[in-house]
Design a protein around this nucleic acid. Structure first.
Lengths: 346, 346
DNA sequence: CTGTTAGCGCGTTCAT
DNA sequence: ATGAACGCGCTAACAG
């Protein structure tokens, strides 16, 4: 009825004995420090493999009387989502101290690639085991990531990926799936057919483009009676989003709206003022004060959300794993898309 | 730009010094072992509070050269959900060994309260720090939980709560919210009005009753044009659920179906054979092989899911916290309700 | 009842 | 290039 027996884990002592060397030598090999002959190193590697040795991270941190240092580099309050992300980090940071985890956060000007690259270059191995960054694709940033990796600092990308670089891990949602889901819901919400208005931030942003593509694919395949109007591009700014939304709302035969970008405040304002709030089926992204209120009032039906807490948790778990096994690859983590109606607001 | 400074954490040495006693005495107080005078213990407690001391769990486990022992007591393959839960435990158990966490699992006959109580009574403090149990409400089980708690074993309830007992923590979804969400979606799916059929396992089960209540509340408040038929009770058995569903499907004017219990295989069979699959809007619970296929084929529109991995993760986190701070209360953890269409299947 | 001490698995001087 | 010895925060066996 119970699980099987398990043998105790191998320790550095076991490895040292098996390789016929001292503990210090094993430690040097383990941490890639110099001062060990090629042949000796190989004996140790062999012993490690043979015994399936895995270092005990906790004991390691204890011995160094040092915490695991993780550094977040994220855009400053560019929008409510980033603010929520920051809040999630602070929440986690408090309980993290108990687990010998120390998280530092640097807020950077949004979209300042050069500044971000400089910050990454400034990271030192002695005060930072792993950096978790939110970055737009950029050549300078990729180079900084590569350099940091060579210095032994693990890099994890969050929310938006940096495919070309040597980042060790990505944490974020599947944006094409988010777009598909929005279409699946709106299609079922509007069985009578009609027009659906699309509001984006910028199609130059990878995540926005992915959402549009997913949305289009499902609409075309499953809901031929619905016609897509747009997308318009509000550049994630409230005022621009508001006026564009206002124009969309004037479209005759409009039955639904999908805002896949930020700028929700402007979006909701236009919706309320049109007098059509509640009569149209509406989907937006990210749970924030604005969207929560709109859910409660019925102006928005569904919010798709990338749960900041889940993303932070996944990123920190990845950080731990990477620091513990600097060699092995940790597979990317797609965070589940949160779907919220007023009925399941957390 | 960075976070504030933080002072190093207090250690047992600090506490011993502040209370003017030895380490051993501090340790005795910390672990509630006998052999300490009342007055001495109070001095130590005071010092602990004053220094905001928190024991280092890893160091503690290291010193005892012992893992954190967590014991799962769950129903055997009563249904696909429980199987998924078991699979999630096994998945987690593998990576857990690295973190000095040892998980043991006992599978029990479903709904055998006496058997469960006996298993709990058999738990020994020396081989089990925390038990995580899935239990229906029962007096004997509650008593066993209380006894175990007195023996120093932390008890966490999973999926279904045991409100009367001294269980230290509950992990599960908000079932009323799940019911509300189903209503919110079906209501929007069927703007033309009509009848919605309700299929339950048993209204004697707390979670099922909660779902029905939530569903009813939202339907009454927001969708007066929809009429509820049922609930019928299929007792989570496939054959019974199938015949009851078949009867519901004969109802004239039916536009939607909500199966809030198990027995999905029977439910889907009835649906397919009626020839109405795809024409009705349908919501069910728990992602399983059956429901995944039904989502893909279009027989089911939405599946509400309590993510087993998330529940296991939350339960283990609670176990850790409880063992680390046996005194303090850890607030219950409501797992988010997963909402899946064919478009965001993971 | 209370204190002393060795040691858990690992990292780190400091010798050799 | 390699090893011995001590300490990290905590527990436990043994003295007193």
């Amino acid at each position: 009825m119970d699980d099987s027996e398990e043998k105790p884990r191998a320790t550095v002592h076991d490895v040292a004995r098996a390789a016929a060397v001292s503990l210090a030598t094993v430690d040097r090999v383990l941490n890639g420090r110099p001062g060990v002959r090629r042949s000796t190193a190989e004996k140790v590697e062999a012993a490690i493999a043979a015994l399936d040795f895995r270092r005990d991270l906790s004991a390691s941190l204890l011995a160094r009387s040092r915490d695991l240092n993780v550094h977040f580099l994220i855009p400053d309050g560019a929008n409510e989502f980033m603010e929520n992300l920051g809040a999630a980090i602070r929440r986690r940071a408090r309980t993290a101290r108990t687990e010998r985890l120390r998280v530092e956060t640097s807020l950077l000007r949004a979209l300042d690639a050069a500044g971000l690259a400089a910050q990454i270059d400034a990271l030192s191995r002695s005060t930072c085991d792993c950096a978790i960054i939110v970055a737009a694709e950029d050549e300078a940033v990729s180079r900084a990531v590569d350099a940091a990796t060579r210095r032994g600092i693990q890099i994890v990308t969050l929310v938006s990926d940096l495919p070309g670089s040597s980042r060790r891990h990505f944490v974020g949602i599947d944006n094409a799936a988010a777009g598909r889901t929005a279409a699946g819901l709106l299609g079922r919400f509007c069985p009578g057919g009609g027009k659906i208005g699309l509001v984006a931030g910028s199609l130059g942003l990878r995540d926005h483009a992915d959402r549009v593509a997913g949305f289009r694919a499902v609409m075309a395949a499953e809901f031929p009676r619905l016609e897509i109007v747009g997308p318009v591009e509000g550049h994630d700014a409230d005022d621009e989003t508001e006026s564009l939304t206002r124009r969309l709302l004037a479209e005759p035969g409009l039955v639904g709206l999908y805002n896949l970008g930020a700028g929700n405040a402007g979006f909701v304002t236009a919706l309320q003022q049109s007098g059509k709030a509640g009569a149209l089926r509406v989907i937006a992204h990210e749970l924030t004060g604005t969207t929560r209120n709109a859910l409660a009032s019925g102006a928005i039906d569904v919010v798709l959300d990338q749960n900041p807490d889940a993303e932070i948790r996944a990123a920190l778990a990845a950080a731990r794993a990477l620091v513990q096994h600097p060699g092995s690859r940790v597979e990317d983590h797609r965070v589940e898309i949160g779907i919220f109606l007023r009925d399941n607001l957390r």
